Simulated assay, not measured.
Amino acid sequence: MTLRDSLGGLTMPRKPRQASRINAGRRIALATVSSLAAGSLVLSSGYTALAQPTPTPSDTHTTPEPTPSDTHTTEPPPMPPPSPVAPPAPVTPPSPVQPLADPPAPAEGACTHTVVRGDTLSAIALRYLGDANRHPEIYAANQALFEAAAREHPGPPVFGTSNLGHWIYPGTVLTIPGAACPTHPATPALADCSKHTFFFGVRGSGEEAGPNNLGGSVIPALFAALNRPAGSVGVHGVPYGAVDAATFIRDVVREGAVPTTTQFGAILLADAIRTQAEACPDQEIFLGGYSQGALVIRSALPLLTPDVRARISGIALFGDPTRVGPALTSDVEGRTTSQCAEGDPVCDRSAPLVNVTACLTAATRVTGGLVGRFGSTCPHFSYSAGGADLAAAFLRSQIQ
């Protein structure tokens, strides 16, 4: 038995199959070599990537610029033609303003007032009617006059209207409504301009008028010290009510302001100063006031225009009740001397208000109803000739 027979017909692998595998490997190798030769495959130690060939000019694709025929433009629809503008309507010129009728002349015997510089309707009402708030009555009685005067001033700030009597003009003669003028004494004629110096004095609360309406204490002493040699200084005392201290305090507490009688004195003083300053432009003008009289002076200064206040050479005040009334105007502060006695509660604002009442009412009882410095220990009545001499020296130093 042969070996072939013992294998039972086992078939051995044949050579041609091995050759086929070799031939397949050769084909792969040849293909690889061919690819390398063509440059289409890059081998590296990393990943395999496809190489992008550099484009040639012939391969570049460029979008051509649009030609005018290719361009599409959207145009807005044409605007309709504008409507014709109608011509403006003719303007009717304003009718000419009819002038106001001439105001009626004041009735015979009627109370009248001629407006001067510095006047206000409220001040005129206070002077003649006793109440500044009654100025609408004077406006109503003189409306045609006020508006006629205002129409002559069409520019600012008047604009042709008096604004219910806010704008009034010097020289206008007003009729004061009422049965008769007040019975207060008229301002006496002032001294002539031959005097180089003129003195306005205002007495204190409750003082009798005395010679020249100067009262009976420090104001006559001040005038005497100034009037040297005698007759060299003109004088005018303001003829106002000068109510007693108790009434003055009651009015201040009740009204909370300058009493009406004091306001009236301020109007009289302002009128007198204005008249004298305009009549005698070269005179030196001095003012002196004691107690309520000092308040009259402070209340009169705002009623004067700055150019008239500039004519006042000096002011002397004694026991000025600074708790009430307007402050001294700043343009005269440097020309003013004000004396306040030690412990005088009227002018010393640091003293309790109750001290004022106690001091003044006690003095009233001691002097028998007339407030004065004699017989009283109240410092408000201690101003004497010595203080007047000091004040007179100060005033003389202010003469230009």
Rank of each mutant, 00 (worst) to 15 (best):
P96D: 15
V97I: 15
Q98T: 14
Q98K: 11
Q98M: 01
Q98C: 00
Q98W: 01
P99Y: 04
D102P: 01
D102K: 02
D102A: 13
P103T: 04
P103Q: 10
A105H: 08
P106D: 05
P106T: 02
A107T: 07
A107H: 01
E108P: 00
G109H: 07
G109C: 08
A110G: 11
A110D: 11
A110T: 03
A110C: 09
C111V: 00
T112Q: 06
H113I: 09
H113Y: 11
H113S: 07
T114A: 05
V115I: 15
V115E: 08
R117A: 13
R117D: 12
R117H: 12
G118K: 06
D119I: 07
T120A: 14
S122T: 07
S122V: 12
A123W: 08
A125N: 03
L126S: 14
R127S: 13
R127M: 15
R127A: 13
Y128F: 15
Y128N: 08
Y128R: 10
G130Y: 14
A132W: 01
A132L: 02
N133Y: 07
N133I: 00
N133H: 12
P136Q: 03
P136L: 14
P136R: 06
E137I: 12
E137L: 15
I138Y: 12
A140V: 13
A141Y: 05
A141S: 04
N142M: 09
N142H: 10
N142A: 04
N142E: 08
N142S: 07
Q143S: 07
A144W: 03
E147G: 00
A149T: 01
R151M: 14
E152C: 08
H153F: 07
P154Q: 10
P154I: 14
P156W: 14
P157M: 14
P157D: 10
F159R: 07
G160W: 04
T161I: 02
G165I: 04
H166A: 09
W167P: 01
Y169S: 03
Y169P: 01
P170F: 09
L174N: 06
L174D: 02
T175D: 03
T175P: 00
I176R: 04
P177C: 11
P177H: 05
A180T: 12
A180R: 09
C181P: 03
C181I: 06
P182Q: 13
P182E: 13
T183S: 12
H184D: 12
H184E: 05
A186F: 03
P188K: 09
P188C: 02
P188V: 11
A189S: 11
A189E: 11
L190Y: 00
C193Q: 11
C193V: 05
C193T: 15
S194A: 06
K195D: 13
K195H: 15
H196A: 15
T197K: 13
T197M: 07
F199L: 09
F199A: 12
F200G: 05
F200L: 12
F200W: 00
G201D: 02
G201Y: 07
G204K: 15
G204M: 14
G206E: 09
E208C: 00
A209K: 01
G210Q: 02
N212A: 10
